[in-house]
């Protein structure tokens, strides 16, 4: 499958700060790709380089087979973007902005526009200066979704939406995927990423530190196991790949690497198990591991889960 977005060793510095420090990002066509990272990790910078608004200092970027800096206007016909902080022309109504942006692309899908306005429950007659943050975001979302482009680049598009609207947004993205479109979604809302994304890339300090399907990422992390035992759980802590063992009478709690689950349960099997819960790592734990500044080297799957 060809990549809708592909960057290699992308570097962008602002003064002495390296906002992007060798970013390698690949988004295959047709997938919904989550782009995650703490504030200031370089997400918006990366998206702006992909849009050709910023010029990378070194490295290469390809978007839909073109070079974003050189072919900006031509590529933009085939993609739509929702900025993280949506600013609109204060004197124009929301409907006017949506129409203007659509016409600049050369399209006027009035049926799709009406449907989206209805679904997002947006009043197109209000002047943009009167819109709340959420409503401004809706204007940008409607404009982007109505454009029916091959690629959608969305920078925290739901940060101002209520849960109802967020659900509408999820439906819309799912529909886009069903139509074979590619979505690059930067977000902090992990449940949203969990629900929508085929794969995610986690960026930290200008670098992608982890990329893969959520299942893969989970696979790299430890499962939390709690058991109630009749006997004494001695010797469990000495098993390789078992960490953070807590013993409280007959209760045992520990984390275990996926490839050591077998060994752990083989040992537990003889100890008179009465109760068992095993939890795969939550998305939150996964991200905390990378977001937290002091926990492990980026990309080191064996780094300790903070606990």
């Amino acid at each position: 499958m060809s990549d809708a977005v592909r960057t290699r060793n992308l570097v962008k510095a602002f003064g002495t700060t390296r906002a992007l420090d060798g970013l390698d990002l690949a988004v295959p066509a047709g997938e919904v790709h989550g782009f995650l990272g703490p504030n200031g990790a370089g997400k918006s910078t990366a998206l702006r380089v992909l849009l050709g608004l910023l010029r990378a200092d070194s490295g290469t970027a390809q978007v839909l087979g073109g070079e974003p800096w050189r072919d900006a206007a031509a590529l933009h016909r085939r993609l739509a973007y929702v900025p993280g902080d949506v600013v609109l022309w204060p004197g124009l109504s929301g409907g006017e902005v949506i129409d203007l942006l659509a016409r600049l692309r050369g399209g006027t899908g009035t049926r799709r526009r009406a449907e989206l306005l209805d679904r997002f429950d947006l009043d197109p007659r209000q002047k943009c200066r009167a819109y709340s943050k959420g409503n401004r975001q809706k204007v940008a979302l409607v404009a982007a979704l109505a454009a029916e482009t091959e690629l959608l680049i969305l920078d925290e598009p739901t940060s101002g939406l209520d849960p109802l609207m967020e659900a509408v947004f999820r439906e819309c993205v799912a529909e886009e995927r069903a139509r074979g479109r590619t979505v690059l979604l930067s977000s902090h809302i992990l449940s949203e990423v969990d629900a929508l994304c085929d794969r995610v890339s986690i960026i930290r300090a200008g670098r992608v530190v982890e990329t893969g399907t959520l299942a893969e990422l989970r696979h790299l992390s430890r499962t939390t196991v709690s058991v109630e035992l009749d006997g004494d759980p001695a010797g469990i802590a000495d098993l390789p790949g078992v960490h953070g063992v807590e013993v409280d009478g007959g209760r045992l709690r520990c984390q275990v690497a996926p490839d050591r689950l077998d060994a752990l349960f083989a040992r537990l099997a003889g100890m008179g198990m009465r109760g068992l819960t095993a939890q795969p790592p939550t998305l939150e734990e996964l991200f905390m591991r990378h977001y937290g500044a002091d926990h492990g080297r980026p990309g080191d799957a064996s780094a300790a889960v903070p606990r």
Partner: peptide
């Protein structure tokens, strides 16, 4: 930020 919105279009 209006420039960004416009220039992310064609």
């Amino acid at each position: 930020g209006l420039g960004e919105l416009l220039l992310s279009g064609p």
